[in-house]
């Protein structure tokens, strides 16, 4: 059987908030190392990869590899029934056709359980090679969300250009042109507010705003976001999930025709 108990249940709630606009259904692949999910959005332009390591759960049992296909809209509705401070347990029998979510209040006075049907999804998995990116930018997640939100008003694409001076986000459209330049922060008292850039070579790529906006739904998960870029390869936008995993979004660039 499979059973995973997460005391910080709100992390799982936030993960679903991070996925539900992009994916309607996906499979959670469970093994003794933890839970993983990889799925492309319907247009195959973006991909989400989630990892929740077993050691991040305060109880984790997975007798046999299990792949649970779920409708994420339904799963999100169920997780919304959990309070932010609830302990969340996910349970399923081997070869099960349903999964149970248990929400316990911290004082154990209230226990709710919701059973959801599982789906048979045979989704394609992509092989993502380990990449040494030309530029890796770390910045406050809220800052990135604000930049994308502001520039989305100007056009449907954002050009992200990284040089040794810093990183520039640009968008152009009918109403005009917007440019936002972020310099690498010298010294900050709080690590989370820093903008750091590790650059091996300058890189400039163009991406669709609508996907970047959907990625920033994960801002609730982590104070920082990491952008990894290399010429002619998809962008990687990563948010940590506590110290137990991550949500990684991959977005194919737009190429000048």
């Amino acid at each position: 059987m499979f059973e995973a108990r997460l005391v910080q249940g709100n992390l799982l709630k936030k993960v679903l908030e991070s996925l539900k606009d992009l994916l309607t259904e996906a499979s959670w692949d469970c093994a003794d190392t933890g839970i993983q999910l990889q799925a492309m959005d319907n247009s195959h332009v973006s991909l989400v990869s989630v990892q929740l390591r077993a050691d991040g759960f305060d109880k984790f049992r997975c007798d046999r590899q299990l792949s649970m296909g779920m409708n994420l809209t339904s799963m999100s509705k169920i997780l919304r029934c959990a309070a932010n401070d609830d302990i969340i347990t996910i349970k399923a029998q081997d070869q099960a056709d349903n999964v149970t979510f248990v929400f316990e209040s911290p004082n154990q006075e209230k226990v709710a359980d919701y059973e959801m049907k599982l789906m048979n999804l045979d989704q394609e998995h992509l092989g993502i090679p380990e990449t040494d990116y030309a530029a890796v930018i770390k910045l406050p997640a809220a800052e990135f969300q604000r930049i994308i939100k502001d520039l989305s008003q100007f056009g449907e694409s954002v050009v992200i250009s990284c040089t040794k001076e810093g990183v520039k986000f640009s968008a152009a459209g009918d109403i005009g042109v917007g440019n936002i330049k972020l310099a690498q922060t010298a010294s900050v008292d709080k690590e989370e507010e820093a903008v750091t850039i590790e650059m091996q070579e300058p890189v400039t790529l163009t991406f669709a705003c609508r996907y970047l906006n959907m990625f920033t739904k994960a801002t609730c998960l982590a104070p920082q976001v990491t952008l990894s870029m290399s010429p002619e390869v998809p962008l990687v936008v990563e948010y940590k999930i506590g110290d137990m995993g991550h949500v990684r979004y991959y977005l194919a660039p737009k190429i000048e025709d």
Binding site: M40, H44, V45, S46, L47, E124, H125, L126, G127, I128, P129, S157, T206, A208, V233, P234, Y250, A252, P253, K254, I255, E256, D257
Partner: peptide, 14 residues
Amino acid sequence: TPIQNDLKEFYAIM
């Protein structure tokens, strides 16, 4: 205007 690529042009299906 720039053309959107598909992820499968970059990553192989496993």
